[in-house]
Write a protein that binds this DNA or RNA. Structure first.
Length: 894
DNA sequence: GCAAGGTC
């Protein structure tokens, strides 16, 4: 009888394969590794009787590493790591598996490889082959190709064995080698360059800090930094929108402007005024239609991580840890899968049946199985299939185990509810959209009534709002209860959440479903990013400085393109279009050139780090001689010295070495080519004067202003010193005078918001357009701002001669028709309710404005209504001064 | 001390 050694990628697969092939008639014995059992049984392959031994590895059996003489960090120039010999070897913790394979292979005739059918699996197959052939050269080697652990697939695979695919394996070899060489060279380079030169305060012991670089971790960091920069450089922009409401017996309907919003105030006011003049609304369209909200696709790893993060704020790392636990205990299926569609052969009903007894969702499971309820629906297909694992689904019923943590309970519940949702009908709603026309401007309001919740009954994590809208009929006319011109300001997008970050990585092909959470954790472990309570990521100074340094070199080493290109090449290798050697040669040659260039431009990294960190006295750097010279004691914190530095743009600054606790700094104008410290002390001022008595420099500062710190990327200092204003030095007179709150309209200082020239002209335009001011008396106080109102007469077409009160403040557009105040019975063409504008009245906007989501100019922008006050917490992104916005930053003049 | 990819 032929003895066949079968090897699977993991113990669970070995067990499944053995169980299926033996029809559960098998013997089990231990191997040398406690996890990797050996199953024995007889089986016929193509009519040939075989004695089968089925065992497993645990993923890769081998690792790739540099030869010993290159392993010590100081053993060679990191550039040598692009050519240093590497070897594949079985690490210590896999030696017992290797011995099992060797012992069994010696006694076998055939080796059949049951590794996962992807590139990594193929590579592991070649590792197994190498070990087995090492002890038995006469082995006949075959590959089993299967896509699911079900009877038909496994038997088919066993009867149709094929040859291993060298190209697939080669692609992984190339990836491994490239990752190692790039990762090790850049990690050693940047760690040895930066760690000892700076006091990196994030690390408790920065002597042991490793500043790692990796082709997956850096693009992941890049996503975080890029979003952060986007937020920092966002300049709030005011916009205007017209809203109106209609009150009827059934309630209030809120209509929003179908133009969305305009950024031009004058245009908005003109359109608004047209509406005010002819406020009769005509219903132009009433549309009712059924809307469906579909259940999610079957659960893949990334979706599991994203949803656990969104619903429970669990980190992706914790999610995978708990999922692995549940999987090991048999409660859920294999948790590392890209597949989001169920095979038609999966018995979905049986899985639902198991949950009928559950105290919480059991009744829902019963309804699902009741054909009369009509709740069942075959799950939709998400379009991904890794050909190895089904979507994550419950495999064993549990009403909760006593040893489970809260996270175990939550995750199991998510998996079960998600599964039940997948086999349920979509929620059904009836949506009503009403459109109206006021003076040619169109507005719409919508409402929704949920007719059947269906899957939402079990998937408590999702909701679908119910909102009633009073009945309207086409052609109906009404006078709005309110018609307002509201304003808001654009807001930057939020920081990336963990779910966002996973989506970015998924989209760019960074990492795999099984490793993405590792890359995120690595960024946290390396102190490159922090995560707040809302699972949103910010770069640390360290993370930002590293990205900034490479960005300044002009390299996109922190962007996902590099990985994408590598992936493309790997694909070419795996289909035989390119050879492993060819891809390795070109890729490593390019990366080495890039590395050597980075070494030449290391000053960019040093400069970026110098923005955020103090120099360390451990430094023996060769590039610091021109930097860090003491000028004088810092007059602000009186603790540290002011030192002469050069920033990353090549500009000089004299900054407090107590940074970031103290941010005292003088920025010398860009045209200054050289700055040195001399022993000369001028006669006209006290020691410590910087440039104030140097007439040439004084004029330069007048002409050019002072440079900003990181103006291009818009990174503000993160804190302002507690013991004084950010920076008030003789060289920056504009900044020292800018403590007055800026105008909320133009963000300039020098005038109050109520006196903003831009508003005055806009208001005047409105007045001249439609209304004549009378020399009326101030008879009532403005209900908005309290300023006395003036009685005026309208001379517009529809309201000529009609009187209204309007606020005498030019910054407040409140007005009210006189006749509407008297008895509430308005003339025929007049509105029944007050119609007032709040456009230029800051104090009213808070109560009027509507939050508008995702309607901004640039991508993922959120708008909210303005409060009328300068937005608290917002500060100039250029210099960090809260007294003005970026548009008015004195430094921008240069 | 370094990467990323498998896995218990």
């Amino acid at each position: 009888m032929i003895k066949v050694l079968n090897v699977a990628e993991k113990p669970s697969v070995a067990k499944s394969v053995a169980t299926i092939l033996s029809r559960n008639q098998l013997r089990v014995r231990d191997g040398r590794s406690r996890y990797n059992k050996i199953f024995e049984f007889n089986y016929s392959i193509n009519g040939q009787q075989c004695h089968m031994l089925v065992t497993s590895v645990t993923g890769h059996l081998m690792e790739v590493e540099f030869e010993d003489r290159f392993r010590k960090w100081h053993s060679c120039d990191p550039a040598d790591l692009y050519t240093a010999p590497v070897r594949k070897y079985v690490p210590e913790d896999k030696l017992d598996i290797k011995r099992t394979l060797e012992e069994e292979a010696r006694r076998c005739h055939w080796l059949v490889l049951w590794l996962d059918c992807d590139r990594e699996g193929e590579n592991i197959a070649f590792e197994v082959m190498e070990v087995c052939k090492g002890v038995n050269r006469n082995l006949t080697i075959r590959r089993a190709r299967f896509s699911a652990l079900i009877e038909r697939d496994i038997h088919e695979a066993a009867q149709n064995l094929i040859a291993p695919n060298q190209w697939f394996s080669d692609a992984v070899d190339a990836r491994q080698e490239i990752d190692l060489r790039i990762g090790a060279s850049f990690t050693r380079f940047q760690t040895m360059l930066l760690r000892d030169r700076f006091v990196i305060d994030s690390a408790q012991d920065d002597r042991n800090l490793v500043l790692s670089y990796g082709p997956c971790q850096f693009p992941t960091l890049g996503f975080v930094v890029e979003r952060y920069w986007e937020i920092q450089s966002h300049e709030p922009e005011e916009f205007w929108t017209i809203n109106c409401t209609h009150r009827s017996d059934e309630g209030l309907a809120s209509f929003s402007w179908m133009r969305g919003h305009l950024f031009d105030y004058t245009s908005s006011v003109i359109l608004y005024e047209m509406c005010v003049e002819e406020p009769t609304a005509t219903v132009t369209k009433v549309q009712q239609q059924e809307k469906l909200k579909y259940p999610p696709y079957p659960l893949s790893t990334i979706e599991l991580e994203k949803r656990a993060s969104r619903y429970f704020r669990m980190s992706s790392e914790q999610t995978m840890k708990v999922a692995e636990d549940l999987y090991q205990a048999g409660f859920i299926s294999y948790p590392r899968t890209e597949t989001d569609s169920f095979s038609s052969r999966t018995d979905l009903h049986t899985i639902v049946q198991e949950h009928q007894e559950h105290p919480v969702w059991g009744s829902y499971a019963q309804r699902l199985l009741d054909p009369g309820a009509g709740l069942w629906r075959n799950p939709s297909n998400g379009g991904h299939d890794d050909k190895a694992h089904p979507p994550i689904h419950p495999t064993k019923f549990s009403a909760g185990e006593s040893r489970w943590s809260q996270d175990h309970h939550r995750l199991y519940e998510l998996v079960v509810r998600h599964f039940l949702a997948c086999v349920s009908q979509p929620a059904v709603g009836a949506e009503t959209v009403v459109e109206i026309d006021i003076a040619g401007e169109r507005f719409s309001a919508s409402g929704r009534v949920i007719l059947a919740k269906n899957y939402l009954d079990v998937y408590r994590f999702e909701s679908w709002g119910d909102s009633m809208i009073p009945t309207h009929v086409q052609g109906q006319q009404f006078i709005p209860a309110t018609l307002t011109l509201d304003s808001g300001v654009t807001r930057p997008p939020p920081l990336l959440s963990e779910a966002d970050l996973l989506s970015c990585m998924d989209k760019a092909g960074i990492g795999t479903d099984a490793t993405m959470h590792d890359h995120i954790k690595k960024l946290l472990d390396r102190f490159y990013v922090t995560k707040d309570a809302n699972t949103r990521f910010s770069p640390t100074n360290l993370g930002e400085a590293l990205v900034m340094g490479y960005d300044d070199m002009g390299y996109e080493l922190w962007k996902p393109n590099l990985r994408s290109l590598m992936e493309y090449d790997m694909k070419e290798v795996s289909v035989g279009n390119k050879s492993k050697a060819e891809v390795l040669a070109t890729c490593l040659q390019q990366m080495k050139a890039c590395f050597l260039d980075a070494k030449v431009n290391k000053v960019k990294l040093l400069e970026a780090m110098a923005i955020f960190f103090n120099r360390s006295d451990r430094s023996n750097g060769d590039d610091s001689s021109a930097l860090g010279e003491n000028v004088r004691p810092c007059g602000l914190c009186q603790e540290a010295n002011m030192v002469l530095k050069k920033n990353r743009d090549g500009n000089f600054m004299v900054g407090c070495s107590g940074f970031p606790q103290c941010r005292n700094a003088v920025w010398l104008p860009g045209p200054v080519l050289e700055a040195t410290i001399t022993n000369n002390i001028c006669n006209s001022c006290t020691p410590g004067c910087i440039g104030g008595c140097d007439e040439t420099l004084r004029q330069l500062i007048e002409i050019c202003g002072t440079g900003s710190r990181v103006q291009a990327r818009g990174r503000p200092p993160t804190t302002t010193p507690s013991n004084g204003p950010p920076t008030t030095t003789p060289s920056n007179p504009q900044r020292s005078n800018s403590r007055q709150a800026p105008c909320i309209y133009c963000y300039q200082t020098g005038h109050a918001s109520t006196d903003c020239p831009s508003r005055i002209s806009a208001t005047r335009h409105v007045q001249s357009h439609g209304m004549n001011q009378q020399n009326g008396e101030s008879s009532i106080p403005c209900s908005t701002c309290g300023t006395p109102c003036v009685l005026r007469t309208a001379n517009t077409a529809n309201n000529r001669g009609r009187k209204f009160y309007s606020c005498s403040s030019q910054a407040c557009n409140f007005f009210v028709w006189e006749d509407s105040l008297n008895n509430g019975s308005a003339p025929r063409s007049a509105p029944r309710q007050n119609i007032s504008s709040s456009a230029s009245n800051p104090s009213r906007r808070g109560g009027r404005g509507r939050g508008v989501q995702n309607a901004g100019r640039a991508g993922d922008v959120t708008f909210v209504s303005a409060t009328g006050e300068p937005i608290s917490g917002r500060r100039c992104f250029v210099c960090g001064d809260p007294s003005h916005f970026a548009n008015a930053c004195p430094s921008r003049g240069s």
